[in-house]
Amino acid sequence: MTDRALFVVRAGALTTVQDRGRPGHAHLGVPRSGALDAPAAALVNRLVGNAPEVAVLETTLDGCALRPRCDVTVAVGGAPCAVTVDGRPAAWGAPVRVPAGAVLDVGAAVSGLRGYVAVTGGIAVEPVLGSRSTDLLSGLGPAPLADGAVLPLGSAGHVPAAHARVDVAPQPAPPAELVLRVTLGPRDDWFTPRALRTFTSRAYRVSPAGNRIGLRTEGPALERARPGELPSEGMVLGAVQVPPDGRPVVFLADHPTTGGYPVIAVVRPSDLPAAAQAVPGTPLRFVAVRRH
């Protein structure tokens, strides 16, 4: 009998289990969660023959090291990094065979921020509300990985033809400059015309204070046109909320479902994977676009 499990040799700075999250429960205060760079997570799944919704590991900056207790195929993607198996170089962005007992080391990101590790069969921790994702805002799902933890793996196989295995696939390089296309509103009228011009024309930088809840920015503060508090209202993924310090925060997957700071604009969903890979200090511009 094989022991389908992964032993965590080195958890890394922040490694979490992620799938496509738990949408549909926002009215109960449950964040959507899920992989921040969803296309990268889907791609590593595809490389090992998993369906796209299977749970993977999301690493942050310094990777992780894992020792499977059975033979597995893995794929590492997202932020580019060195990959080794028992110290020998292995491929990044392609399927890699890891024998039982060998150590897969996912190195520090060479560029970008978040790496993704898919394993055949997927990470099979107990789902919560239909998802295995770790939600760092509300604490739903498994805790972030810790050294010495053991993660159960799902059984391999049952790969639908539509998700047939690929051997290698191009992945976008993390951005040197992050350009986020936004549609203004719903609360752009809470800001002065000058603040709106500043928001869509001046240079910002990605702040080191960001996390899975939001990408924080450094740059010119945005001045309100009206004082007071906005009654709590529903928040969407990609909402650009402006707290009292005037620096925009872009809501990522673990964002709160309701909030009381005005949302000046919303980032196009297709620009959010790049936002998830932008390291602190990356130059950032918000570009206003019309709705489709």
Binding site: P23, A26, E233, G234, T258
Partner: peptide, 15 residues
């Protein structure tokens, strides 16, 4: 719609 999120003075229809 994916989400119907009531709040203090609003209802959000997301997705």
């Amino acid at each position: 719609v994916r989400e119907i999120v009531p709040a203090a003075r609003t209802v959000l229809l997301d997705g």
